[in-house]
Amino acid sequence: MSAARGSSSEERAYRDHEEPKNVEPEADSEHDATDSVIRLEGVGKTYGTVRALTGIDLSVQAGEVTCVLGDNGAGKSTLIKIMAGLHEHTSGTMLVSGKARKFGSPREAVEAGIATVYQDLALAPLMSVWRNFFLANEIRKGPLRLLDADRMKRITRDELAKMGIDLPDVDRPVGSLSGGQRQCVAIARAIYFGAKVLILDEPTAALGVKQSGVVLKYVARAAESGLGVVFITHNPHHAFLVGDHFVILKLGQMALDASRDEITVEQLTEQMAGGDELAELRHEMHEAD
């Protein structure tokens, strides 16, 4: 099913390239577009002659964790960048709260309630924790519109405490925090600033077991509090711990689209490693013995 859809949207990608004004029919999406915060329909992205993504259908529901899995180069980053406003998609439609959108800048995405926590966290390492927390959302006071540093420090401390991180000195540069703490600062920031959707780009990739656990706990907590969470990872075990819905990307296309009750962690791992390829690999390793 997904293969057929992929090829048809490939054609669509070419058509759209010539006629960028072409609007997708929205009739079939109307009945469930309302309860998904973000909905992608046949979304594709070409960089010159390179097709990074084709025919992506994805729906992010409030209060759910949607996991996007894929190996390096599968198109996960491109997908995030489209939703985060760093790149514009070249085909298909992206519906945000039911409205077709194309973001020209990350600011537009943030204003639409989409917060992204990148692999590199989008934190300036030499800046203090509180300055990073309020970056581009500074609280100002008085006729001179000076920064209300005391209030921002207090809020930063409180918000981090809510996530279970006790950071008495928020004046410390972010670079001096541990990886898990940095990740949590970025997540806490996104939640505090009223995100409806939280996109997490490989939040556990560089972390140890315990810190990964802490971060996964906050991923689940964010979804419980009503946010739509997009969790990008290449670790099927991490994904299965928190995910409600799973999408596997392979070479820029969707290879799997299943909800939690349709799949087991073994199947997910198998699919992720590319089932047949894994069997072949096993065979080759036996040959080598």
């Binding site: 985060a84 760093l86 990350p106 600011r107 943030v110 992204t116 990148y118 590199d120 966290l121 989008a122 934190l123 300036a124 970056l135 581009a136 959302n137």
Partner: peptide, 8 residues
Amino acid sequence: EAARASGV
């Protein structure tokens, strides 16, 4: 890049 992504 981080600044831009944050909306600066």
